[in-house]
Amino acid sequence: MKAIVTVMLKTGVLDPQGKAIGHALNNLGFAQVGEVRMGKIIELELTETDTAKAKAEAEEMARKLLANTVIESFKVEIAA
């Protein structure tokens, strides 16, 4: 079972990389782009076959290592 963990900087935490990407897109002529936020996606191959348990496991991993909850929030999705 695959868990997909998305880690993003919390709202309000300065995201200079997102800002730089936004500027670059504006410079390329994409004037319609407003705020840009950048995060990361971590895919985990898990042995667990129960969706709820797999989600709980991945969430624990996110809390302990994958995200720094001082500055980041995370979301776990289970892909079949």
């Binding site: 900087l9 935490v13 300065l14 200079p16 990389q17 730089a20 720094n68 001082v70 500055i71």
Partner: peptide
């Protein structure tokens, strides 16, 4: 030591990148 929770807060990418 901030990641380990010995001190509060975190260090982000420099504002000017």
């Amino acid at each position: 030591i901030t990641e380990a929770g010995l001190l509060p807060g975190a260090l982000l990418r420099n504002a000017g990148l």
